[in-house]
Design a protein around this nucleic acid. Structure first.
Lengths: 246, 246
DNA sequence: CCAAAAGTGTTAGCCGTACACCCATGA
DNA sequence: TCATGGGTGTACGGCTAACACTTTTGG
């Protein structure tokens, strides 16, 4: 049977925040199809062909569940990638055809990014646990297909969403966090360093970030006060974004 | 032949700005498939099935060209809509099957918004000119398929892009425009009124909006100074968006 | 001379930015 | 007692927001 229309897939760029190293990490799936090529060509983002009867968002949630054992993950669709030549190598086409069990000429993918708590991700629950790994952004060049491009778009979309409070960056943090963790997360997302005192002054004006009556324990320095995030206050605070940048 | 995967289409939400009436308008395509239903069920956004060999962006440009006779239109992909039930009525399914000449069970659409100058849009050049019309946002409820939802997403995406200077709102204006026109455009996009003096103070700080040595003519009131938009300065000015909203 | 829209300045309070030292803890 | 990161204040300049009257034109 000839294929007359492009296949449709979803791909998920899963972000996790390593609070120790203060780094934004990305979950990738490692295949073994290129033996003689160096670099990251064996790395791709987790994804799946969209079944005929499934909603796009549901397909993405399903991928995430099979991957991390997590349900109701924070997931945002950010772009569809449809270059007819996005499958670059014969090895990739053959891999995809074997993997999905259909003849494939072209795949259009709807890309999502997900925010998860890196400590919640339980690889034991994953069907494909031994093929998953976390990498940092600067180790993600030259991935399979157009996935390095997809990552650039994902990072830009995340940054945009965070700037306008269109996403909950707190999904990446544990329920109790320090201001230093929060600051390094913002710095990782925005791609720039910020001044500690000014950052804290700003955060103290955010009604949705609230201090607990509790401190860090067991650290070899002055223990930090812990904070939590109030989602309802956050939702309310969205309303007064008015002023555009000139 | 059974269809095993969803069809893929692109749809374009075309915005135009009516500077006289100070309204944001939307270009819709009118069909004649519902006789006995009231409302806007006959209205849809222009779109097309994506051919097997075409890039998504190219397909959208092609739709725009056939529609408006314009090339290199400002076009931004903003969301993919893939609810399996987005074709709601039998009449719509039959229309789509007749229109595209294939059996259709499900269509996933990649939605774009376009900004065009309403005065440049030459309906004479359009293949389907007698079926196109401009409507305002508040007259766009209950459109065909999920197109009213698509419009809501388009407006939100446009607003977001304008806030972050990710799109050129000046594509909607003639090359020479007054500050009153510019202000009413911002107001239409942001959905809120602004103070004239404060708006002008802000605009005067934008290096990319420059006064001409020329005024309006033939108006029955004090003629307004004309301004133009400098794209290079605009691109340069994007770099210093840093501060997130709390 | 009237109607209509253009154009203009000041004040008060808030926000962004730049910058350096003491504090609490575990080892 | 030392190393480590936590926590804090001030001053300046720029931005936002509120607010009302005069000017220029065509009719």
């Amino acid at each position: 049977m000839a294929q007359l229309i492009p296949y449709l897939s979803v791909d998920c760029v899963v972000f996790g925040f390593d609070a120790e190293r203060q780094e934004l990490n990305i979950l990738v799936y490692e295949r073994e199809i290129f033996n003689d090529r160096s670099g990251n060509l064996n790395l791709k983002f987790p994804g799946s062909i969209v079944p005929m009867e499934d909603d796009l968002d549901d397909s993405a949630q399903k991928v995430l569940f099979e991957l991390t054992g997590l349900k109701n993950v924070c997931l945002k669709q950010f772009h569809a990638f449809g270059n007819p030549d996005r499958i670059k190598f014969d090895e990739e086409k053959k891999w995809a055809e074997r993997h999905y069990g259909v003849k494939i000429d072209r795949v259009v993918t709807i890309a999502y990014y997900a925010l998860i708590r890196i400590d919640k991700h339980n690889p034991e629950q994953s069907r494909i646990r031994d093929k998953l790994k976390w990498i940092t952004h600067d180790r993600a060049e030259n991935m399979a297909f157009d996935h390095s491009l997809i990552l650039e778009y994902a990072l830009a979309a995340l940054k945009k969403d965070v700037l306008l409070k269109d996403v909950n960056v707190f999904e990446l943090l544990p329920p109790k966090f320090t201001l230093a963790q929060l600051q390094s997360l913002y710095e990782a997302v925005m791609g720039k360093k910020m001044d500690k005192r000014n950052f804290r002054k700003k955060i103290s004006k955010a009604s949705y970030i609230k201090a607990l009556d509790e401190k860090q324990r067991g650290v070899a320095h002055k223990p930090a006060l812990l904070f939590y995030f109030d989602k309802d206050d956050f939702e309310r605070s969205k309303e007064d974004i008015n002023t555009f940048f000139v």
